[in-house]
Simulated assay, not measured.
Amino acid sequence: MSEQADSAVLERVAVGLAGMSRDLLAQDSVQSTLDSIVTHAVQLVDGCEHAGVLLLDRHNRVDSAAVTGDLVRDSDAAQGEAAEGPCFDAAFRKAQSYRIADLEAEADRWPNFAPRARELGIASMMGFLLYTEEGDLGALDLYSPEPGAFTRHSELVGWLLASHAAVAFAGARTSAQLQAAIATRQEIGEAIGIIMQQHGLSADDAEALLKKISQQRNVKLREIAQTIISDCES
């Protein structure tokens, strides 16, 4: 590849990643962020025709968090059913990335998953670790129906994309957790106000009563608060 052509490729990748970063920051939920990640993966990574974000918890339960189509969802399910495959290897080895040129050559490594993947029309795969948290694994997985579809250049672009995606994913999760915490505090505060009014209690005594009810019923404080608010509004 000439220096001019190489420069054009780098410029295209840089522009594409910059656009993806802006798009990810504009998303308003964790799910929309994940959906945007897999869409951009297909658009930016050479050889990629399908993409998905797979979550694998400490009990090896598989969750297709975002997919570009049924092929990805079926592949995730096949790995979960077989309890083997590239995502399981990544989970146990904590591998940052993998690139599989031809799944037909992986029958000894994954005797149950590899044949199923070929039945689904998957010839080559590539994946990148997104995050690990409390034993859970998140991975961005890329698929092609052609063997050898992913080159070293594809892997480099995929790694850059996954790095941007991981930051956006973590940010979206933090934002969602913060919003949930704020909503919880607001609901608990409203429930305490209702208890104060109904029973003539101080704020501290009303909060203590709310916590006591939560403990006695073994129900989360927010759920008790929501019930009190709902009963008051009905």
Results as ranks from 00 to 15, higher is better:
Glu190Tyr: 05
Met196His: 09
Thr184Lys: 07
Gln226Phe: 11
Ala18Asp: 12
Ser175Phe: 06
Pro147Phe: 01
Thr174Met: 04
Arg152Ile: 09
Val72His: 05
Thr68Glu: 04
Ala176Trp: 01
Leu161Gly: 07
Leu221Val: 10
Gly80Ala: 09
Met125Arg: 12
Asp108Lys: 04
Ala166Cys: 08
Ala83Pro: 03
Ile37Ser: 08
Ala14Pro: 01
Gly193Asn: 08
His153Phe: 13
Arg185Lys: 13
Ala149Phe: 00
Ala225Gln: 12
Ala172Arg: 01
Ile122His: 00
Glu119His: 04
Asp74Thr: 02
Ala208Gln: 12
Trp159Lys: 11
Gln4Thr: 15
Met125Tyr: 05
Ile229Thr: 15
Ser75His: 01
Ile100Met: 10
Asn112Glu: 13
Thr184Cys: 10
Pro111Gln: 03
Met1Arg: 10
Phe169Thr: 03
Ala191Asp: 05
Glu223Ala: 15
Ile37Pro: 02
Lys220Thr: 11
Leu103Gln: 00
Glu3Asp: 14
Asp108Leu: 07
Lys212Gly: 12
Gln179Asn: 09
Val13His: 12
Ser32Arg: 12
Ala5Trp: 05
Leu209Phe: 14
Ala166Leu: 06
Met125Cys: 06
Ala14Phe: 13
Gln179Tyr: 07
Ala183Glu: 09
Ala65Gly: 03
Ser97Thr: 14
Phe128Cys: 04
Arg58Tyr: 05
Leu160Glu: 06
Met126Tyr: 02
Gly200Phe: 07
Gly158Tyr: 01
Arg185Gln: 13
Val72Gln: 06
Gln43Glu: 15
Asp108Pro: 02
Glu223Ser: 13
Ile195Met: 09
Gln179Glu: 10
Ser163Thr: 13
Leu209His: 14
Ala165Met: 02
Ala90Gly: 05
Leu10Gly: 15
Glu207Lys: 15
Val9Gly: 04
Gln43His: 14
Cys232Pro: 06
Arg217Tyr: 13
Ser32Asn: 14
Tyr131Met: 00
Glu49Gln: 09
Ala14Leu: 11
Gly80Glu: 01
Glu84Arg: 03
Ser64Asp: 05
Glu155Leu: 15
Ala18Gln: 10
Ser154Cys: 08
Ile213Asn: 10
Val45Thr: 09
Gln226Lys: 15
Ala123Met: 00
